[in-house]
């Protein structure tokens, strides 16, 4: 069982990096997020995340508004929010909140000559703080 979990977590981390997401592995997210936050950041707990695509679901209309307005969006993800795929992640999210929304990376555009620019209208940076237990910590690649 822990092996499967580790595999899933490692897959997730790889996916997040591929999606240009800043990832922190933490044993205590509340504590570590303190060091990351600033006046331009918005922190919220994720309802779920899909390990294969890195799509993160959040809940609440206020969170939707505040996360879209922030320069830096920080997501706290706990082990039990990690799902295999996006359908599972959606179903888990909708079971926890009525109003949900998903984000997978910082805001971006390629509308001018196909040049990739981060931070078009939404956050310029998207950070995931992945909280995992002591015993899993050592198994993260």
């Amino acid at each position: 069982m822990p092996n499967e979990v580790l595999e899933l977590l490692n897959q997730l981390i790889e996916t997040l990096k591929r999606n240009s997401v800043e990832v922190y592995i933490s044993k205590d997210a509340e504590r570590d997020v303190e060091r990351l936050k600033s006046e331009d950041s918005f922190i919220c707990n994720a309802l779920s995340i899909a390990a294969d695509t890195g799509i993160v679901f959040f809940g609440g209309f206020e969170s939707r508004k505040n996360s879209a307005l922030a320069e830096h969006h920080i997501a706290i993800i706990r082990r039990d929010a990690v799902c295999k795929n996006v359908i599972e992640a959606y179903n888990l999210a909708i079971s926890k909140s009525n109003v949900i929304f998903a984000t997978s990376t910082a805001s971006k555009t390629g509308d001018i000559e196909g040049k990739l620019i981060w931070g078009m209208h939404g956050p310029k940076k998207f950070t995931v703080v992945l909280e995992i237990s002591e015993e899993l910590y050592g198994g993260i690649a």
Binding site: N19, A102, T103, S104, S107
Partner: peptide
Amino acid sequence: FPPAYINVNEPVE
């Protein structure tokens, strides 16, 4: 892929 945002809009307070 994936897209940066998937919006799931519905009536809200």
